[in-house]
């Protein structure tokens, strides 16, 4: 499975379009990380725990999008976009979407 955020896969030709595929995940922060982040909030800077959490979540959303594309028979997803929304306190939705295509 090849993915890109452009309208084609570099070095390949698109032969068929399958349509929009999406993947999402909603995650909450866990309390241990939150306490560490609370301490870090005093001096500022990177919240490494949160970076990792969002990275994992985004990977999962991307994986779900890829699964959907595979089930359609596609072998690539182009024009991938990411969106993040905080839906309630302490929870965030990570969302990935793109166009499933077949490339050669």
């Amino acid at each position: 499975m090849e993915i890109s955020n452009t309208e084609s896969i570099p070095g390949r030709t698109i032969v068929q379009f399958y349509g929009v595929v999406t993947g999402n995940t909603v995650r909450a922060k866990h309390i241990g990380r939150d306490i560490m982040a609370g301490l870090k909030n005093i001096v500022g800077g990177e919240l490494a725990g949160y970076t990792e959490l969002l990275q994992d979540s985004r990977n999962e959303a991307t994986q779900r999008m890829i699964q959907q594309a595979e089930s359609m028979g596609a072998n690539a997803v182009v024009n991938v976009r990411f969106a993040t929304s905080s839906i309630s306190q302490g929870a965030a939705e990570l969302f990935a979407y793109g166009t499933a295509v077949r490339v050669e």
């Binding site: 090849e2 993915i3 890109s4 955020n5 452009t6 309208e7 896969i9 570099p10 070095g11 390949r12 982040a37 870090k40 909030n41 005093i42 001096v43 500022g44 800077g45 990177e46 919240l47 949160y50 970076t51 969002l54 990275q55 985004r58 991307t62 991938v80 990411f82």
Partner: peptide, 26 residues
């Protein structure tokens, strides 16, 4: 959003990097 003309690519993939930061007390 398209490759510059003088690039000739054999393969490509999506890459990303992210950081979460907080605002300090001060």
């Amino acid at each position: 959003d398209t490759m510059p003309d003088d690039w000739s690519a054999s393969s490509g993939t999506l890459v990303s990097g992210s950081v979460v930061i907080s605002l300090d007390y001060f």
